[in-house]
Design a protein around this nucleic acid. Structure first.
Lengths: 239, 239
DNA sequence: CGTGTACTTGATACAAGTCAAGAATAGTGG
DNA sequence: CCACTATTCTTGACTTGTATCAAGTACACG
């Protein structure tokens, strides 16, 4: 059930059976969460971390005027609040964007896991470091790329991350997020997101029907986004 | 010479003499870097991490059209590329914004340090986790706050971070960054940054003469920014 | 004391937001 | 299975925040 996480970590460095077993041991039973529900609320203190077994979630922050900014979209195999092992108090909330299955790991157990397994600890540390790298790419896209390039960048990122966990292939994948959610992630209005998608459709770069995205011209998409996948660290290397 | 780092870590959790000594041992001699020079270039692979002993640096990414986005401003006591211990390949560059003094620590030595000192390792991990939290705050400010609120948020953050290392007190501090640099950090044009500063001056919120910023009305500044310092984790707690 | 960099201000352009309303889908209960 | 409802998507008209272009002023520094 924690296969996606193992696949992701194994994509970065060899994971031995002992480590896999240790990881499995800290995870609690699968829990179902309905779309729209908070998995972790803003500002709370937590004593456990959460692994996504299936579904999409978002880190978000709400402002006084009710506007929301999503700072990362997470998916199957992501340890969404691993950072809370070190920073107990949440600086943001995490909401289920679709129906999700999750599993918890207590900080006490995780603490023992990282104490006993140095190599695995470094891989988990790496995972939090990659979160930061994703944040930086979003910052660059938000601050200095055009809205269209920003959207293209997000599509490229989602495709690659889904591909790692077997939920994307041949430039086809499902992204069951509303345009309002995408707007909150991109820092744009829903209307503008809609027009950008229309533009990509019109140029024949993608089709997007329901949740199903088909990238017809990947090269063009990556070119508009100036997409460089280095930051996702999807190659195997001793860590 | 590494006092600022020790002060910062000690602000978060008790650091014993053994840990302090171990930290000192991995650091090489102080090196001078002139303003404008790259400390680490984009895309390169590195085998050492860098601690700022004095001065200001910026993480940045350059786009094809020459525009630049700064994703974090770093200062005295910051381990600017600690993440490279785990992700060797840089996904961004680091430039000296002012003349700086820095010290290097080889990854081999750092690796041994984190292997031998679990608690210290967690504090360093925490430091990278806080970098991610800072990125998230910038994302929120960029995506959903007004340009004015974004600038105010940056001023609040810089003040608190400088205060930790003894470079700010009584709402007065030096921020020797040009408005062009601030624009690259905020994702705004230089002209607009200039007008925002004028607005804050006009409202009597701050004075800003040369590099010297005096916050006359901190409450107002924090209110505009909706600033909540939780993300900087500046309280002591076992980690 | 001259020259480059940073700051400041004004005029204009444009990207993206807001408001509004209709069309398409998906979900729900009878 | 269909009618009813609530989202979500789409399009148009208009507004606004921020960028761009341009020119002048104030510093800093060699």
């Amino acid at each position: 059930m924690y296969n996606a996480l193992v696949e992701k970590l194994a994509r970065r460095d060899v994971l031995d059976a002992v480590e896999e077993a240790a990881l499995a041991r800290v995870l609690g039973p699968a829990v179902r969460v309905l779309a729209g529900r908070d998995i972790v609320s803003e500002h709370v203190r937590v004593e456990q971390s959460t692994l996504i077994l299936s579904g999409f979630t978002a880190r978000y922050t709400t402002l006084a005027n009710g506007r929301r900014q999503i700072t990362e979209i997470n998916l199957t195999g992501d340890f969404i609040d691993l950072h809370s092992l070190l920073m107990k108090q949440m600086d943001h909330g995490i909401v289920a964007l679709t129906d999700c299955t999750i599993a918890h790991a207590s900080h006490a157990d995780l603490r023992k896991l990282v104490d006993d397994h140095g190599h695995l600890a470094r891989l988990l540390w790496l995972d939090t470091v990659i979160d930061a790298a994703i944040h930086r790419q979003w910052l660059v896209a938000m601050g200095r790329r055009s809205a269209l390039a920003h959207l293209c960048h997000l599509i490229c990122e989602m495709y690659l991350r889904l591909e790692v966990v077997g939920q994307a292939a041949d430039h086809v994948f499902d992204l069951p997020l509303s345009q309002a959610v995408l707007g909150d992630a991109l820092g744009l209005s829903t209307v503008h997101v809609n027009r950008l998608i229309g533009e990509l459709r019109g140029e024949g770069v993608i089709t997007w029907v329901g949740a199903r995205i088909t990238v017809l011209r990947w090269d063009r998409l990556a070119e508009i986004a100036e997409f460089d996948p280095t930051y996702l660290r999807l190659h195997r290397e001793p860590t």
